[in-house]
Design a protein around this nucleic acid. Sequence first.
DNA 1: ATATAAAGTATCTTTAAAGATACTTATAGG
DNA 2: CCTATAAGTATCTTTAAAGATACTTTATAT
Lengths: 118, 118
Amino acid sequence: MEKKNPDLCKVENTLHILIGKWKPLIIMHLMFGGTKRFSDLQRALAGITTKTLTTQLRELEEQEVIQRVVYPVVPPRVEYSITEYGMTLQPVLHLMHEWGNAHLERQLSKEQASFHNQ
Amino acid sequence: MEKKNPDLCKVENTLHILIGKWKPLIIMHLMFGGTKRFSDLQRALAGITTKTLTTQLRELEEQEVIQRVVYPVVPPRVEYSITEYGMTLQPVLHLMHEWGNAHLERQLSKEQASFHNQ
DNA sequence: ATATAAAGTATCTTTAAAGATACTTATAGG
DNA sequence: CCTATAAGTATCTTTAAAGATACTTTATAT
């Protein structure tokens, strides 16, 4: 695949970071809302379980999109924030937002249609 | 979610179209390679099964990103092509490609690391 | 001594996406 | 009459992502 579709691969590098039910939401929260604690995020992402949030955060940290800082206190205090590298995703997210917004009507009419088909 | 995170939603509209193991590849093939038959695509996407290819194509068609034209001949001839709407994704894919390319080294070093950990 | 707090782990179950494999359809060519 | 062909369907199985629920840790305040 790498050899055959080098261009695709680069798109998928980007996609890879954004794929995950909660990842764009987490990134945008930290990107625009600043540093947050684990419990802040869990509150903001209503419905996410601790296990899922942990997994998503660990993956984003592994990808160096976010940063995790542990304060050695009891009860623990852990802060998450976007990295400089993570911030470079901003134009990408912005364009995706623009596109999604511009084509919102088409998408809504589809959802409406599938709703009626149920 | 729509009410709480309207901006995220628009990003996810876009993401929704691109998510799927083969979708970006299909879109890029049709976007840059022009009209293709089912069997052309299956050959191009080495490894995809007929069932999976059918599913992906039907979803993209449903989303109006691609167009399906059936010629009533035997054996059947079916041609797929990108729509005008689908073409509007080009800047988005381009930016994702740019970002993926710019941050390739970081990603490669990670893969290398995880390879050594096995 | 007990309860509380924050940030998780550890297991198990559910759901969705993708893959494997076999079958179908209709006609033209041998 | 049999075969080949393109574009699929139809089922069943595998895999990966996400969810549910219970448990853990450890210093402090009661």
